[in-house]
Computed example of a mutant assay.
Amino acid sequence: MQPEPFERIYTARWADMDPNVHMRHSAYTDYAAQLRLEYLAEHGFPMQTFAKLAIGPILFREDTRFLKEIGLSEVIRVRGELAGLSEDGSRWRIVHTIFKADGRPAATITVDGAWMDLRLRKLTLPPAELTEAMKQLPRHETYADIVKNS
């Protein structure tokens, strides 16, 4: 059975606006990143734990599709779904959908990421508990296992 969607409600702030008085392009990715951090914290991996483990998430690719404008003080709903995961949990893909208050999608942000050892500055395998937390993220309709190249 599919877990409940992981979503949060936010209000678009003045600082999120551009000179056209709609949400600036980079604010969409800021909300996606915030959602990821909240998900990880709620599943046992707050930033303090990452600091103790000396690992952190990194992105290889970020793709944003803008669909509808978001205006000042507009309430938005952000959903995160797992779109891919490697068997060892080292690589992952997450699709974030930002919805307007009326339920229409305003944007999708797809990120491909991995885990970095912050001391060695190299990619690393995550602890088993972190891989398990990632597996608990609801799956996006496009989910496909990530097969790493040797």
Rank of each mutant, 00 (worst) to 15 (best):
Y31A: 02
F60V: 00
A12Q: 02
H43N: 12
A101K: 13
V111W: 01
D102M: 09
P138L: 03
A114K: 00
I70H: 03
Y31F: 14
L37M: 14
S150H: 13
P126Q: 02
I146A: 07
K148I: 15
E62P: 03
E74T: 06
D16G: 01
Y31S: 02
I55R: 07
L59C: 08
R24D: 12
V75N: 13
L118R: 09
I94M: 12
R119D: 14
E132C: 01
G113D: 04
V78W: 04
R104P: 00
Q48E: 15
L59Y: 15
T29A: 14
L37Y: 13
A106R: 02
D30Y: 09
P3T: 10
P46R: 05
F66R: 08
E132I: 01
A101C: 06
W115S: 00
D63R: 11
R121N: 10
L130D: 02
F45T: 01
R79C: 12
L125E: 13
P46A: 02
E81I: 00
V75C: 11
T110I: 06
L137R: 05
T131W: 08
G71M: 09
V95F: 02
K68T: 10
Q48A: 14
L137H: 08
I109S: 02
A27V: 04
V147C: 09
I109T: 06
P138R: 00
V78A: 09
G80S: 06
P5F: 00
P127C: 00
I98K: 00
A41N: 06
Y10L: 11
L37P: 00
E74G: 03
M47F: 11
D16L: 01
A101W: 08
P57L: 11
M116Y: 04
D88I: 00
L82A: 10
V147T: 14
L120A: 15
L40V: 03
Y39H: 03
W115H: 00
Q34L: 12
G103P: 05
P3A: 08
T110V: 08
Q136F: 00
R79H: 10
N149D: 13
P46T: 06
